[in-house]
Write a protein that binds this DNA or RNA. Structure first.
Lengths: 165, 165
DNA sequence: CCGGCTTAGATCGTGTGCAACTCAATCGTG
DNA sequence: CACGATTGAGTTGCACACGATCTAAGCCGG
């Protein structure tokens, strides 16, 4: 049963887990950090067979879905830095999965385009999500709820930087 | 309202989000990856004031809680590799927060011990969790549920490696 | 006591992440 | 048009993560 006045996570109440403690096993941040690395580790052997790392796979997902894309949109969508993406894209290009072209109407902008090899990879990649999801041991409801909560958490945390000033 | 037979996340049902799709925004893995990095980014400025990085902070949390510890226990608790922890501990030692000593009764084992400076840091670190938790914008119930789900996810995913064979 | 096995830890190479810096192309304004 | 500001992208340096390899210390059967 739930209280009608849901307490804020920061509040102290008797008998309540200490959300503000310094205990490692009570930290949400560590649970998040460990879960993220565990899931990436689950992908690793499957992606290795395709010649991709996990962040490279995220880039390919975006390209398969959206087609040719300026680097800027990858920065936004993946919430990654140019300092991370530039060398990553260089490696994807060296592997023959993408090409990078300066746009003629704006020479600042670099378009990222799939090569045929990059497009072909999508078929093999289709086998990955089912294998991952089956390892999760979550119901579809838990899956959806977890994802929704994480998206909301990311938004509230990342949005702090520009607090409507 | 919920079904009496909760569907498994991998199953396909009409009108159901495609948990096995290749759409970036439907991937739990990406939500996890983005949330983890966002939360670490939230810690970064607070930890920088203490002279710590985020993984270094996790090590300090463990040491504040448990006292002198062999490196092996840090490997287990943080689910990190010696290849990650060895240089990290070397940096913590160079910063003057810890010391490393070979144990006399087993020369293979390296004990990690807090220095006075390392112990003192705990006081300043006490101010961090409340500030983080207040930025989450989660109720205490959501906080607990999220952490529990993540811990379970990590266990089910990491446990796959040794399936009682 | 000895050779083989296991264990605890370190090192190296590759690939991220991210901050700081640089650079070229474009834009806005006078 | 000139010129400073902005934008899109790349480079560099540092600190993770992780696989692979290495070493030294303990363990164990014969």
């Amino acid at each position: 049963m739930m209280s009608l006045m849901p307490r804020k996570a920061g509040e102290f109440l008797a008998g309540t887990p200490a959300h503000g403690s310094l205990r490692l096993d009570e930290q949400l941040c560590f649970a998040l950090y460990a879960a993220s690395r565990s899931v990436v580790a689950l992908y690793r052997p499957l992606l290795e067979a395709l010649g991709l790392t996990y962040p490279q796979y995220l880039v390919m997902l975006f390209l398969w879905e959206r087609g040719p894309t300026p680097v800027k949109d990858l920065v936004t969508a993946l919430q990654l830095d140019y300092g991370t993406l530039s060398p990553l894209l260089k490696r994807l290009e060296a592997a023959g999965f993408i090409e990078r072209r300066r746009r003629s109407d704006d020479e600042r902008c670099v378009q990222v385009v799939l090569t045929p090899a990059g497009r072909d990879l999508k078929v093999a990649a289709g086998a990955i999500p089912p294998r991952i999801v089956s390892a999760y041991d979550l119901t579809a409801e838990e899956f959806d709820a977890l994802r929704a909560t994480l998206v909301r958490l990311t938004a509230s945390v990342a949005g702090e930087e520009t607090p409507a000033g």
